[in-house]
Design a binder for these strands. Sequence first.
DNA 1: TAATAAATGTTATTTTATAACATAACATCG
DNA 2: CGATGTTATGTTATAAAATAACATTTATTA
Lengths: 162, 162
Amino acid sequence: MRQAADLNCPPSIDAQQALTRAETLCQQRGARLTELRRRVLEIIWNSATPLGAYTILDMLRDDGRQGAPPTVYRALDFLLAQGLIHRLALLNVFTGCRRPGSHHGGQFLICRDCGRVSELSNPAIDELLRAETDARGFEVLAQTVEILGRCPDCLKEPAHHG
Amino acid sequence: MRQAADLNCPPSIDAQQALTRAETLCQQRGARLTELRRRVLEIIWNSATPLGAYTILDMLRDDGRQGAPPTVYRALDFLLAQGLIHRLALLNVFTGCRRPGSHHGGQFLICRDCGRVSELSNPAIDELLRAETDARGFEVLAQTVEILGRCPDCLKEPAHHG
DNA sequence: TAATAAATGTTATTTTATAACATAACATCG
DNA sequence: CGATGTTATGTTATAAAATAACATTTATTA
Ligand SMILES: [Zn+2]
Ligand SMILES: [Zn+2]
Ligand SMILES: [Zn+2]
Ligand SMILES: [Zn+2]
């Protein structure tokens, strides 16, 4: 996977803003953004690409912190519940939410080659999905729209050098 | 998970039709629907709910057939490549495609309680997603829309008895 | 038939996620 | 403050999902 600067994606917040935002939201909700949880969120935001749970665990250990898989998964569960991160089911990785606060199902473009992710926020898609579920009397608990492919930058490359 | 008859879902084919259809399609394409691959497809279609790879493996062994995880995953890979089944990334399970032949990204309503799945075929959603990817110059390789929730039947139940 | 390619068998391992229980930190009340 | 209940984290072990690597068999084709 190549690493690169930024995918031309919708209005996006940066790591610093994300952490500040997370603190505000958790405070308002009476949720405890502990040091561990905050650090996991920071690790996720500092990465150019989404991270797997075990990669995050390695980074926690690099901090000198002790930990095991449950350490990470619990923090991730908290962040997911607070709508601060998303899980990309196609790749089993986690990425920071670009619109925290408004609980929403994710819409993602995931580049197979460089791993970068673009979070969409297309209300028309949400609307159509809501119409489908309403028509069927289906109660929505979680929702994900994931498109795996190749981003413009990687399409410029001669071919897929995987 | 409760088991039940049928979710009120779009025009759907049954197991028998699916197998016949698969044979026709594979023949047209020069793809080999071997006995193993056919049997895996049949197992998937005979189930009221999507199945995990290891459940399918157990069923193959019940047939008296020998096998290991790769046996199943290879067959699943073939069926996926032929567009005969879909993988639901949220649950790591596989389900028969209700519109085989037209390669398409899946759109699914998945009931958390009874496990049954409804495959949508909303062209407007496909259209919006295509518009998003086109606008970004993003080449689509795979696409999935998954909504996890509670189906009408399960909503009739007093509460979530998990 | 011999050579080639495709499919399957087989063993081992990697990757992802959770169960179960112990300890520590934090809050709330007497 | 100290006792009590609750939440968060530490820790060990295991479950669940997927793949790597190589051997063998089956099918295709020259
Ligand atoms: Zn988001
Ligand atoms: Zn890319
Ligand atoms: Zn389909
Ligand atoms: Zn249901």
